[in-house]
Design a protein around this nucleic acid. Structure first.
Lengths: 251, 251
DNA sequence: ACCATATTCAAGGGAATGCTTGAATACGCC
DNA sequence: GGCGTATTCAAGCATTCCCTTGAATATGGT
């Protein structure tokens, strides 16, 4: 006898009376609803999209370029995120800007990364393969950076794509993308420690910035987490109001 | 030109030099890794399993009965949860007990429910259909309950299946399953408010207990969240050490 | 009105998923 | 060693998912 009981088909066995809420069918549907939220994060490409939107709003073709997928495919992923309620849209002329629908989504994404980092056996290997060796790199925590950010002995650079800096960044940070970094070394004061940050704990931009700076003999450290975590912690942020956020094409 | 760039195929366009980490392929694989954690929660049945395991460890056939699925199917779902690292196992004779692999998993599950509750359009309807009308039911927060639990004017009952009570419960609570409730009404002191709790904010047991108590003219309220949230908040818990946790068959 | 740009829609193929069924494995008991 | 119980494994089928391709829609500029 392998099958589940049929006698209590539509009424939970814990329920003593027939007319109470709690049918198995409704329970299945409710949990299918919860599952639909997780399902939308069950694609690596959509996870990348959420990681990018956690930085701020972005139009479709900016996202498409960032995740290296066709516009059509990116659009379909965005539709799925939209249907599940994880993102919302804002139209501006011919462009449609997507953004996370709330901080709870950011927390969910952080929880996924945390579980993967703590419990998924292969993750260390995958992270190592993408990020390279981090063991020799100096890091700084959010709390420490906030403490020391006004002291004048360090400078904070944001190495995310310009569009993300403009959508919001750590108060007092300057934007230096990786592409520009080597040509703008002279603009960095050589008597301060440079602290680089980017999208989050698994973002490679800050790592590579620190590597480049070290090669040029400049003291540099990486912020352990990224802009979304800084913002979610309620630490001071600011946005470029000089211009509307645009996507940045490399070509 | 709809396709993503091929010229930067294996090197992130933000990276200035060729030998730095950050290839697109490795990034895809890393995010596929994160996605694999979410994917395992993308089935309603596995979500139910996680909800049950958040109460404490449980053997396969107990879970199978609880989610109303065949043992074979339940086992396969558990294998997937195991591969993704969300659960761990403990063998005891011929039984294999599954449990969540850490509190991060519990937080992840809470984050999924939170996002669904805040942003998924259909969820209210699904919850209403499973739980019934909650609007007339009195509730109590964790903090308030902890405050008043020693005052002697209320009594806390745990209406989850006995196995879950034994695996861990709110300190000072007494176990009264829904099945027993009507026959044990005389054991409840009639000069105190009864506070019922169960698995979490979307669990129907406590609701139905309060409904039954009200029908018998007993003052009763529902704890807003359940045992996992109480435990994760660091509030006092205790476990039955009189016997090893068993599953409970209704049949 | 016409064109360019940004985004969405629709159809199709190959792969993966969830559930079922029936058999295999592992442990404890006699 | 043989039996009963708990769990896992393996094969099959209908469904769903991801990505691709090509066309359709919507907005703004000239």
């Amino acid at each position: 006898m392998n099958k589940p009981g049929k006698s209590t088909e539509d009424m939970d066995s814990q329920t003593p009376m027939g007319h109470y809420p709690g049918s198995h069918k409704a329970k299945r549907e409710l949990f299918d609803g919860f599952a639909s939220v997780a399902k939308v994060l069950s694609s690596g490409r959509r996870a990348e999209i959420v990681d990018i939107l956690a930085q701020g709003e972005r139009p479709v073709d900016g996202i498409s370029h960032e995740i290296d997928q066709t516009i059509a495919n990116t659009s379909q992923h965005l539709q799925q995120l939209l249907r599940a309620g994880l993102v919302k849209t804002r139209r501006e002329g011919t462009r449609i800007y997507y953004s996370l629908s709330g901080p709870a989504v950011s927390r969910l994404w952080a929880a996924v990364r945390e579980v993967a980092g703590e419990h998924l056996a292969e993750l260390d290997e995958l992270a190592m393969s993408y990020l390279g060796d981090r063991s020799t790199m100096m890091t700084m925590t959010r709390a420490e950076l906030r403490e020391r950010i006004g002291d004048g002995d360090l400078i904070v650079i944001d190495v995310r794509p310009e569009a993300e800096f403009q959508a919001g960044h750590i108060a007092g940070a300057m934007s230096v993308t990786l592409k520009e970094l080597e040509t703008r070394l002279d603009q960095l004061p050589n008597d301060r420690i440079v602290v680089a940050y980017c999208r989050g704990p698994y973002c490679v931009f800050a790592d590579n910035a620190v590597r480049t700076l070290h090669q040029h003999g400049i003291q540099a450290a990486r912020l352990e987490e990224g802009y979304p975590e800084w913002k979610d912690a309620g630490f001071p942020v600011e946005a470029s109001t000089t211009d509307l956020p645009r996507h940045d094409h490399a070509s």
